[in-house]
Nucleic acid binder design. Sequence first.
DNA 1: CAAATGATTGTTAGG
DNA 2: CCTAACAATCATTTG
Length: 171
Amino acid sequence: MKLVWLRMIWYDVGKADVAADMKGAKGKGTAKRDILKPVDDKKVGKRKAPAKAVGKSKAKGGKAAKDPNKPKRPPSAFFVFLEEFRKTFKKENPTIKAVSAVGKAGGEKWKSLTAAEKAPYEAKAAKRKTDYEKLMNAYNKKQESMADDDDESEKSKSEVDEESGQVFSIY
DNA sequence: CAAATGATTGTTAGG
DNA sequence: CCTAACAATCATTTG
């Protein structure tokens, strides 16, 4: 067992809670998780590494991350909602086109939406997800056939630092 | 001129 | 389980 989820204590406690939850409201078992979740990631600062987007970078030196066929991640329900929300927002505020403004407003509105209102968006998101899986299937197939990479063989960098790999979050 | 930035939430993949 | 990255958008900014 190489990877060990060093959170046995949490798991023990969580198990009890989950059991209790399951009895009360089976569907809402995740409520506790939210509370226990240590990350309140309100703002993470830079979310993406600009390295890959640079594009030019290396033509083929290392990993050619440029994969035009790679399927994009399926939009979440929030994004589906945003797509429509953007139109509305722009209509009401033709002068404001900044992405930040729309994002904030959209987020606020999204929070105010009820489950029933979010349902259609979630449904659409679910559908997109299935499509994504299909695309991934095709993509994987293509990748398999594309076993043509010259260099870039295995780097034998399979280091094993699982011992200290994960952060120790003590509660 | 081309490309990153900002802001939002959900979700996915990997560890 | 936890965490980082990324999906759309586009005016603005930066190199």
